[in-house]
Amino acid sequence: MLHVHNVNYAYKKQSLLENVSFEMKRGEIIGLIGESGVGKTTFGKIVADYIRPDYGNIQIDWEKDKPYPVQFLFQHPEQSVNPKWRIKRILEEAGRIDSYLLRLFNIDKVWLQRFPNQLSSGQLQRVCIVRCLLAKPSFIVADEITTMLDAISQKEVWQNLLKITTTNNIGILVISHDRILLDKICSTIYELKDLHLKPIARSVRIN
């Protein structure tokens, strides 16, 4: 279980989060929606331990000698890779490369010898998703991860990611402006508005 307790955060004296509490079980797919600039990505980074809150805390089971159990997937994958590393090394940073995951996300083995700038944003995002899964997380924060893909590729990526996370009981916090997507894949949707998280929908997930 992931617990967020009374988190507060301000950026340049502008409050973004105020007494925000949230919990998530492994295997849950929860959506987060809100206007641009309200702090959705900031909240996701706090959950994933990229940013420390000004007040409040995150509680999660974690063995200190293992990767942090919440992995963050960026909207722009080039922000999360070393541009001087080849793709093979980028993947191996998280663990032993899994050929099944490469096939599932249509990653050509030829890419492994390339550098990030030799792949398209969509190709690099697939690499980052596989790297995330190689770290064997308990939870994933997915921040607008398919906005650079066409509709067919978006569907394919989400189907495969949900297949893997369901099999491995991984929870996902899906940050998106796309309410249609959230309605299709999430059991619960929250809106970040006026510094607080508010549940706005519960639905039956459609795989």
Rank of each mutant, 00 (worst) to 15 (best):
L197R: 03
M1V: 11
V20M: 13
G44C: 11
A151R: 09
I90K: 00
N169M: 05
I107N: 10
M1N: 06
V130K: 10
L17N: 07
D108N: 08
G31A: 06
M1C: 08
F43W: 02
Y9C: 10
I172T: 00
K155R: 13
H177I: 06
K66Y: 04
L17E: 12
C132A: 15
D108L: 01
I107D: 15
I189F: 01
A201R: 15
R205H: 02
R86M: 07
N168E: 14
L101K: 06
V157A: 06
V204I: 13
H177Q: 04
K163Y: 15
K155V: 03
I129D: 00
E144V: 10
I145T: 02
S153L: 07
Q125F: 00
P116K: 02
F139E: 05
K64Y: 10
I152G: 00
I175G: 01
K184P: 04
E63M: 05
I87W: 06
G39L: 07
T165W: 01
Q123M: 06
T165I: 02
N117Q: 15
S21C: 12
V81W: 03
D54I: 03
I29L: 12
A94T: 09
V127S: 11
K64W: 07
E23N: 13
K136N: 14
I189N: 01
V130T: 13
L197V: 07
E78P: 11
A48K: 07
C132M: 15
T167P: 00
N82P: 01
K45T: 03
R202K: 15
A151Y: 09
Y68E: 10
P199W: 03
I140R: 03
V141W: 07
S187I: 01
C128E: 06
V204T: 12
P77H: 04
L195G: 02
Q118R: 01
V141R: 09
E35F: 02
K155D: 11
S15G: 09
N168F: 14
C128I: 07
Q14Y: 11
W85M: 13
M24P: 02
R103F: 08
A48H: 10
N168Q: 13
L102C: 09
G37M: 08
T147E: 13
Q59R: 06
G39F: 06
G44V: 13
R103G: 09
I90E: 00
A10L: 11
F72C: 07
S138Y: 10
R114T: 14
A135M: 03
V38G: 08
V110S: 13
W158K: 00
A94V: 08
G171K: 05
